[in-house]
């Protein structure tokens, strides 16, 4: 802690996160159109822009007796948590704030998102909103253990919780090569942490939008911005953890970071449109009987390698 963080570095980072969030929304829109069989990619790419304009002029809606303070804290909290999580994501080789506990910081910000989403659901004073809010808590708790172990396995391989050190430790061999299980578990649990795609039940269509069913106008716009930013940051964090950060031939570090982030983002968005939504109660036993033992074994293997290397 205690490093000096430059104003312009933070401003640049926020701009980058914003750009990635817009890219994620456009990618989502294009892939969605393709999955639905609409062959008009350019029009689909501009759909997020149209949706933004529509939400900006839409009338705000407030349910009687709703707790608007908590709802506002929740809506803003998702954007804030995504931005704070981005602080430890390296642009190139080093993050803007290379905290000595960067990996724990990232996980803590993800957990704040559960609280924020529950607050939106609760503050809306609507049945579907509340059910969606409870879903994110169940889902978050269910996936937190495998997620935490996947993060810790990468930190264990580097011998440090500092994200810069994790990147530096992959100069010889990317972690994805010798901890493939941890990478797979990270991607799967990242879907749950960003309540996205197959694990998007907290805001799913079956609840008419779940936790955010009552959000309209600017409130929904802020939520969507935070949601796509969260997805982009979650995808970006896989790169320093498992894909060597900004390492790569010819191109500069930041460009490699961007390309790899877009590749992971593409996989996550693809998963949304090509995989069915999973009911979490059906998946629960598989999570406990398969996922957690698998990631524990992976951590054991990595631990043995680390000790054997000295």
């Amino acid at each position: 802690m205690g490093e000096d963080i430059g104003f312009w570095a933070v401003a640049g980072l926020l701009a980058a996160v914003g750009g990635l969030a817009v890219a994620a929304a456009m990618l989502d829109s294009v892939m969605g159109a393709a999955a639905m069989g609409h062959a008009r990619p350019v029009a689909a790419m501009l759909d997020p822009v149209r949706e933004t304009a529509r939400l900006l002029v839409q009338q705000r809606s407030v349910v009687p007796a709703s707790d608007s303070v908590l709802r506002l804290i929740g809506t803003g909290g998702i954007v804030l948590a995504a931005a704070l999580a981005a602080l430890v994501v390296p642009v190139g080789m080093r993050p803007v704030a290379d905290l000595d506990i960067g990996v724990v910081w990232f996980n803590a910000m993800e957990v704040l998102v559960w609280a924020a989403l529950w607050l939106i659901g609760w503050g809306s004073n609507a049945a579907f909103g509340l059910v969606g809010g409870y879903r994110i808590i169940a889902q978050g708790l269910a996936y937190e253990l495998p997620h935490m172990f996947a993060l810790i396995t990468a930190a264990l391989g580097a011998g440090s919780l500092r994200v810069g050190d994790v990147v530096a430790a992959q100069s010889g061999l990317w972690f994805v090569v010798w901890m493939p299980v941890a990478f797979a578990v990270y991607l799967l649990s990242a879907l749950a942490m960003a309540f996205w795609g197959p694990l998007g039940q907290p805001v799913d269509e079956d609840l008419a939008g779940g936790a955010v069913s009552e959000l309209a106008a600017v409130d929904r716009l802020v939520f969507l911005a935070g949601r796509y930013a969260l997805l982009a940051v979650t995808a970006a964090f896989a790169v320093p953890l498992f894909l060597g950060g900004g390492a790569g031939p010819w191109l500069p570090g930041w460009l490699w970071m961007l390309l790899k982030t877009l590749a992971v983002l593409g996989v996550l968005v693809w998963a949304r449109w090509r995989l069915p939504t999973m009911r979490m109660d059906r998946f629960m036993e598989a999570a406990w009987v398969v996922l957690i033992p698998a990631i524990l074994l992976q951590a054991l293997v990595v631990g043995i390698v680390v000790v054997a290397r000295g």
Binding site: M1, I101, V104, W105, N107, A108, V111, L112, W114, A115, W118, I137, G140, L141, E144
Partner: peptide, 14 residues
């Protein structure tokens, strides 16, 4: 400090 943020957020949500 960060473990307190992590654990307390989870605990308070539950």
């Amino acid at each position: 400090g960060m473990v307190i943020v992590l654990m307390m957020t989870m605990e308070m949500v539950v």
